[in-house]
Simulated scan of single mutants.
Amino acid sequence: MLANMEHEIYRQIEETKLLPLYTATDLSCLDRLEEILVRNEVRFIEVTFRSNLALDAIKKLAQSGELIVGAGTVRTLAEAKSAVENGAKFIVSPAIVPDVIAYCIERDIPVFPGTATPGDIQRATEYGIKVVKFFPADIYGGLKAINALSGPFYDVKFLPTGGINEENFMEYIQNDHIVAVGGSFIISESAIKKDDGKTADKILKTLVDKMRS
C-alpha cells in the first residue's frame, strides 16, 4: 500500500511553511498557545512525545478544531495509534518506523518519517512517501545535503528540523526542495510562560512577517 500524497495536509503545510514543535509540560499554556498560533495564521502544531503530557495536549488542542494537530517523536505503533485516537491528524517520526508508516498509510494519515541518508529516503519512497523529515538537519549537512540529495531524489521534498532558527530559516524555506521547516524556535512553552505569551507572540509575528516581506 502506498501513501496518498494528494492529502490536503501536505498542501496546507507547504503554504504555512512553519511547523512548530511543541513539548508540553504544563497544560495551562495550551489556550495561549492556540491563541497565538491562530492570531499569526500558523495553524499547525506538532506535539512531541517527549513528555508524559503529549496525549493530553494533543487531545486538548484538537478539540476546538482551530489547529491542525499532529504528533511528533512517534517511535512506536502504540504511540501512533493513541495519538490518532486523541485527535492527531498527522504523524512525524525521528526515523523510518515501518509499523507506524504502514498504520498511517492504511488510514490515509499523512506521515513524515525521519531521514538522514540516501538509504533512509529510498526506504521512504518505497512506501510512496514523497515528503520526508530531514533530521537532524544541521548535523547531516543542512541545505548543502538537501540540495545534493535532491539530485537523485528529484521527486522528494524535505521537512528539515534540527539546528534551524530565526537566523537561517528563510534560507531553508526559500529552497524549492523544502515544504516547510520545523522547530521549537517557532513557539515554545518557555516563551509562553515568560510573560503570558507576549514574547512568544512577538517571536512568531517576526517570523511570519519575514516570510511575507
Score class of each variant (00 low, 15 high):
183 G>T: 11
140 Y>D: 06
142 G>K: 11
172 Y>A: 02
164 I>F: 13
187 I>F: 09
150 S>F: 01
172 Y>K: 06
163 G>S: 12
139 I>R: 09
141 G>A: 13
165 N>R: 09
176 D>I: 10
143 L>V: 05
169 F>H: 12
152 P>Y: 10
175 N>P: 05
203 I>T: 12
181 V>C: 11
191 A>M: 06
151 G>F: 09
140 Y>Q: 07
155 D>A: 03
175 N>F: 06
154 Y>H: 14
185 F>V: 07
202 K>A: 15
195 D>M: 13
144 K>L: 00
178 I>M: 13
148 A>E: 02
199 T>C: 01
161 T>W: 01
140 Y>I: 12
147 N>T: 01
182 G>H: 13
169 F>N: 10
142 G>F: 07
171 E>G: 12
152 P>M: 13
194 K>Q: 10
173 I>Y: 09
200 A>F: 02
187 I>G: 06
144 K>R: 09
155 D>G: 02
162 G>H: 14
159 L>E: 09
169 F>A: 09
187 I>L: 05
170 M>A: 08
148 A>L: 04
195 D>L: 10
180 A>G: 08
159 L>Q: 14
193 K>D: 03
187 I>Q: 08
197 G>Q: 11
194 K>G: 01
177 H>C: 03
169 F>M: 10
182 G>K: 10
156 V>F: 08
152 P>D: 07
149 L>A: 00
175 N>E: 08
138 D>H: 02
192 I>W: 00
194 K>N: 04
